[in-house]
C-alpha cells in the first residue's frame, strides 16, 4: 500500500535519512521505531510531502507520490497526526473536523459527528478546540484525520504524553480501525504499545533501516538491541 524506496534526506551536513526503504502492507499496522534523531519524523515528513527527498521515491498503491505538495498527498489518501498535536485552537471541534473533510454538506457533519463519537469526544463538538485537554486534542487529531477516510494513516507518537488509560483507549480505537481494514504506520516510543499493536516493525538508526519484521523477530535482533532497544524491551515484555 505504502512504500519508500532508497529515500535520502539531509539537513545541513547531517544525513537524516539514508537509502531508507520501508513497506506498509494494505490493512496492516506497521510500526516505525528508533532512537531520538533516527529519522522517523523526517520519514513522515518526506512521505507527506512536507520535506523534499533528495533521492529515492515514495509510492502509494503503486503510484509515485515523491515530493508532491502536502495537500495533494492528503487528497491522494495519506492522513497524518503529529508528535505535538496541531489542531486549530480557535475553530470549534466540529469545524476542525469539517476543515479536514472533503466537503461541508450535512452528510459530512453526520460523518464528522460519528468519528467524534468513535473517539469519545462528541460531547465537545461545539467547544473551541483550544479548550480541550492534551489527551482530547490527540483524539481530535485522530478523528479529523479519520473523517477524510485516508488509505493510510500515519500516527506520530499517538501515545506520547497521555495517561496510561488513554493510551489503552487509543490502542483499542486503532485495533477497531485495523479490524475494519484500515492501514497504519505508527511512530512510537512506547514499546509495549508498539509491540502489542503492530504486525510488522521497522527499526531506524541514523536514518538507515537496521531491521524489519514481526515484533517477535525484531525484539530479539542483535542490531536492534545494539542500536536502540537494549534491556528496556526485555524488561517490559
Amino acid at each position: 500500500m505504502l512504500r519508500t524506496e532508497g529515500v535520502r534526506k539531509s539537513y545541513g551536513g547531517v544525513r537524516a535519512l539514508d537509502e531508507c526503504t520501508i513497506e506498509v502492507g494494505e490493512g496492516t499496522v506497521a510500526g516505525l521505531i528508533g532512537p531520538n534523531g533516527s529519522g522517523k519524523t523526517t520519514l513522515f515528513n518526506v512521505i507527506t510531502g512536507y520535506a523534499k527527498a533528495e533521492a529515492g521515491n515514495v509510492y502509494l498503491a503503486g503510484t509515485k507520490i515523491t515530493n508532491i505538495a502536502p495537500d495533494k498527498v492528503f487528497t491522494l489518501g495519506i492522513g497524518r497526526t503529529f508528535q505535538l498535536t496541531r489542531i486549530f485552537p480557535t475553530l470549534t471541534v466540529m469545524e476542525n473536523m469539517l476543515v479536514a473533510s472533503r466537503h461541508a454538506r450535512a452528510a459530512d457533519r453526520k460523518r464528522a459527528m460519528a468519528q467524534l463519537e468513535f473517539v469519545g469526544i462528541a460531547g465537545h463538538h461545539a467547544a473551541l478546540a483550544g479548550t480541550l485537554s492534551y489527551g482530547q486534542r490527540k483524539l481530535l487529531e485522530l478523528a479529523y484525520v479519520l473523517v477524510a477516510d485516508p488509505a493510510v494513516m500515519l500516527l506520530d507518537e499517538p501515545a506520547g504524553g497521555v495517561n496510561p488509560s488513554l493510551v489503552n483507549y487509543i490502542a483499542d480505537r486503532i485495533r477497531e480501525l485495523h479490524a475494519a481494514g484500515k492501514t497504519f504506520l505508527i511512530v512510537e516510543h512506547n514499546m509495549e504499545f508498539v509491540m502489542g499493536l503492530c504486525d510488522r516493525i521497522t527499526v531506524l538508526d541514523s536514518g538507515t533501516v537496521v531491521a524489519a519484521g514481526p515484533p517477535d523477530i525484531v525484539r530479539t535482533d542483535r542490531r536492534v538491541l545494539d542500536a536502540y532497544l537494549g534491556e528496556d524491551v526485555e524488561d517490559s515484555t
Binding site: 505538495a69 502536502p70 492528503f74 497524518r80 503529529f82 496541531r86 489542531i87 485552537p89 480557535t90 484525520v145
Partner: peptide, 12 residues
C-alpha cells in the same frame, strides 16, 4: 492558525 497543519490535511 497553522499553515503547516492546514497543508497536511489537504488545504491548498
Amino acid at each position: 492558525q497553522d499553515e503547516t497543519a492546514a497543508r497536511l490535511i489537504g488545504i491548498d
